[in-house]
Write a protein that binds this DNA or RNA. Sequence first.
DNA 1: TGCATATCGTCAGTTCTACTGATCATCATG
DNA 2: CATGATGATCAGTAGAACTGACGATATGCA
Lengths: 148, 148
Amino acid sequence: MSEAVTDALASRLGYLLKHAQQRLVAAASPVMAPFGIDGRELTVLTALAAHSPLSQQEAADEMGIDRTTMVLLVDALEAKGLVERRRSHEDRRKNIVELTAAGRDCLRDAGRARDEVEREFLAPLGDTLSREFVRALRMLASQPGELP
Amino acid sequence: MSEAVTDALASRLGYLLKHAQQRLVAAASPVMAPFGIDGRELTVLTALAAHSPLSQQEAADEMGIDRTTMVLLVDALEAKGLVERRRSHEDRRKNIVELTAAGRDCLRDAGRARDEVEREFLAPLGDTLSREFVRALRMLASQPGELP
DNA sequence: TGCATATCGTCAGTTCTACTGATCATCATG
DNA sequence: CATGATGATCAGTAGAACTGACGATATGCA
């Protein structure tokens, strides 16, 4: 990875977003590793905890990923004992995915670790710019999307 | 893609960065398509124009991507007649990569198109927040990196 | 009731991106 | 000239995420 962003590329939004994300992932990976999950899996746990009960499809929509990708994510999390599948009684096509006790523990501990990584990542910006940045990013990530 | 970012995920930096980038790519792709190149290729053209002459290795370092990835990128751009390889006279191991006339035209036209996409993408933020956002992003993308 | 259509989860296969490791040519050093 | 380093290339690999198809189930309509 290059040390500094050169002027010519510094104004290219796509380039900046991609590299900022790469740096965050690079910083987060070693911190998350001891908990046995990665950032995407923690996001699944977060979504499940916030909106339980969710079916796989609903969780996938929530995260903006494909339902087939969610199958693999839930497979992995279930293998680790962090979530459980069960058939919905109301709609037997649906798999309700729920956190196990271990999943809740993992979410709490790994969540704290990641919060700390994010704080350090944003630290160079200072408090004010940090808040502005996250506010702006939140708006951009939820821009009026193209519906199917 | 989901319509809105829910509260639980709205504070997850990795999630926000990834989805903001996805939205930008989704917005840029159709606009870039008529020019026959994608965002990454335009970034290569930009880097070459700004720092010419560059070898493939130097261009790769500039962009923070792998040298083997650059081989494929230059292959594609050369096939489109936008860049040319030539052996360096000073160091015959190096391939100097240079824009062709068509490459310069493409950079100018596609660059304008992408600038416009970026403006529209940032528009919801307003002028002030836009500038703050880009400034912050620039700092985060060039954070003190881990050197090899 | 019975049939058509839609939805959910799953799987196989594909695409895209980017990496590692090996190889060959070339350079630099002693 | 011998040795080790560097640049470009290629083959192979890995991960993420998609498409398309399938079986099971639900829903709507005649």
